[in-house]
Amino acid sequence: MNANEAINSQAASLPRSPELMNAGDTLLCLVDLQERLVPVIQHHERIVWNIRRLLDGAKVLGVEVVATEQYPEKLGPTVEPLASRIPSPAASKLAFSSAGCTDVFARQIEQLDSGGKHRVLLTGIETHVCVQQTAYDLLAAGFQVLLAVDATGTRFSVDYETALRRMESAGVMLTTTESALFEWCVVSGTPEFKQVSQLVREPAP
C-alpha cells in the first residue's frame, strides 16, 4: 500500500486531518541557502543536513521542490549538497520575500482554488528576514504555511527565537524535519517508508 492508497483507505473510516501534510498537496521551498550566507549561520551544518534529508525524502515521495536565491551575483549560488538535488534552477530575487518570485509560485497560486498544492513547507535562511517575509506573504495568498524549525536559522539566537514566536502567532505551523518526512510518508511497510527510515536514522553532523 502506498501513501495515496493509505489515505483513500483511511477515508472509508476516519478522514485524515487537514492539519497533516500529504506528499501531493505540499510544496517544499528552500529559501536562500547560498554560499556566502550559510557559513555565518548558527548550526549551519545541521540545517544543511536536515534540508538535504528533506530533499532526498521529497524525491522518494514525489514532493515538489522549489528554491530561491537572494542576489546570487553577490551572495553566490545554493550550497552543495543541496544545489545538485534541486530539480529546477533556483529563482533569483532582490526582494527579501520569495513569494514575489512569480515563476516559482504563480502556478501554485492559480491552483489554490482547484485543489492543487495548498501547503508550503519552508526551510532556509535567515529565519527573521527572508523566511519570515515569505511566510507572511504566502499566508496572505491563501497557503497553509509550515516551517521546519530545525531546517532554518539565523546568525543570532534572539532573531531566530523571536521570528518563530511571531510566525506561529500569525498562523504558521511549526514542525521538524523528521515529522515532515513521516507525514509525507503516511504509512509504514512500503518501499518508500524504508528509504525514509534510512534518512531518519542517519547520524547528525
Results as ranks from 00 to 15, higher is better:
D113R: 02
F105Q: 03
A180N: 09
V149S: 15
V187Y: 11
F182N: 10
R119F: 00
Q195E: 10
F143L: 05
L138D: 00
T162Q: 15
L139K: 09
Q108T: 11
D103F: 08
V186W: 03
I125P: 05
A163Q: 04
V196A: 02
V104H: 04
Q111F: 02
C130M: 03
E110H: 04
E168C: 14
L139G: 00
R119T: 01
F156H: 13
R165A: 15
Y136T: 11
H118M: 02
G100I: 05
L199P: 03
V145L: 09
I109K: 07
Q111G: 03
E161P: 07
E192Q: 15
G100D: 03
D137Q: 10
G171F: 00
L146G: 07
A180T: 07
L146D: 05
W184L: 03
R155M: 11
L122G: 04
G100S: 09
L147V: 12
Q108I: 06
A135F: 00
S97I: 06
R165V: 13
E168A: 11
Q133G: 14
F143C: 00
P191V: 02
V196E: 06
L139H: 06
V172E: 00
F182R: 13
V186L: 09
G116Y: 03
F143E: 00
S114M: 03
S97T: 08
L181W: 01
G171K: 09
A180L: 01
W184H: 04
E178P: 09
G142M: 10
A148E: 08
D113I: 01
S157F: 15
